[in-house]
Amino acid sequence: MELSDFHIGLEFVASAGFRWRCTDVGTRTVLAIQIDRRDPNWYQGPPYIAKEVVFDEHEIAHCHLTNADAVSAALKDHQTMTHPGYPSAVVTRMLEARHAQPYPHSGVLRFDRCRPDGEILHPFAGRQEEGEWVVELYLPFQEDYEVMPERNFIALPRVTPADLRARAAKKNG
């Protein structure tokens, strides 16, 4: 979906098929409450008892009007996907590392980044080393791990679909 598709009261699907109701539309974001209770009193407002959540441009792009639209988009993504994915052992390691030490800059972990050589870096945890925050990374195309100072990681550009296609072509070529 796009920002222009939203209006107050619109119900939509996001985040693993959960239903949401738009409560406000800004210039770059949407506020919404999750529709997950039977009692309609949770949804009276504003202000609302239910927590309003901010959807930014990245999250808005992954919203859909219906479950059928969400499934169609997921199938299309799967058919055209260039990302190699994450083996179960890698997911386990990433989750264990994420919960081993609280990391106060969770926004750093939201987006993959691209190194100048085209390598894709997936951040999954942060920790302090010698008084400095470092980001633990998984390199999905190399199936390997690295650690990078947080300041260096956030200076890299976010991964785009073109970056993924280029990296996949490099691996397959």
Rank of each mutant, 00 (worst) to 15 (best):
A70S: 14
V147L: 12
T92V: 09
M148H: 04
V108H: 06
P123L: 01
D77F: 08
L75Q: 13
I120G: 03
E130D: 09
G107L: 09
A89S: 13
P140E: 15
E129F: 09
P140Y: 15
S88G: 02
H105L: 11
K76R: 12
Q128E: 15
Q142V: 07
E96L: 10
L65Y: 07
W133A: 03
Y145R: 04
Y86N: 06
L156V: 01
R110Q: 14
P116L: 10
W133K: 02
E136W: 01
E150V: 04
V159W: 02
F111P: 01
D77C: 06
F111Y: 13
E119N: 03
E150R: 15
G107I: 05
E96S: 08
V135C: 03
R98W: 05
R158A: 11
G85D: 12
R151A: 12
E150D: 10
E130N: 09
E129M: 10
E136G: 06
W133P: 02
L109H: 07
H78Y: 14
L95N: 10
P140R: 14
E119M: 04
R115E: 15
L137P: 01
D77N: 13
M148A: 04
A100T: 08
L137C: 00
A73P: 00
P104M: 03
V147E: 15
F124I: 03
E129D: 12
C114Q: 11
G131C: 08
E129G: 05
M94A: 13
Q142I: 04
I120F: 05
H83R: 12
A68V: 10
Q142T: 14
S106V: 13
E150L: 13
E129W: 09
P84E: 00
R127W: 04
L95V: 03
R110S: 11
A100Q: 11
V147I: 14
F124R: 02
A97L: 02
Y103T: 02
R127A: 05
D77A: 12
F141M: 03
P84F: 01
H105F: 12
P116Y: 07
K76L: 09
G118I: 07
V134G: 03
G107A: 12
A73H: 04
D112Q: 06
V90E: 06
I154R: 03
E130V: 00
V147K: 14
H122V: 09
E136A: 08
H78K: 14
E130Y: 05
L95A: 05
T66R: 01
C114P: 01
D112C: 06
N67V: 12
P84Q: 02
D112V: 01
P87R: 15
L156M: 01
T80H: 00
L137E: 00
R115T: 13
A73D: 11
T80E: 12
D112I: 00
A70R: 15
H64L: 04
H64E: 05
F111C: 08
F141D: 07
G118K: 09
L75C: 04
V108I: 09
S88W: 11
R93H: 14
R93G: 09
Y103F: 15
R158Q: 13
E96C: 06
C114I: 04
D144S: 06
H122M: 08
S106W: 13
A70K: 07
E96H: 08
E136R: 14
H64Y: 13
D77T: 10
P104L: 02
D144Q: 03
A73T: 06
A74F: 06
V90T: 15
H122R: 10
Y145P: 01
V135F: 01
L95Y: 08
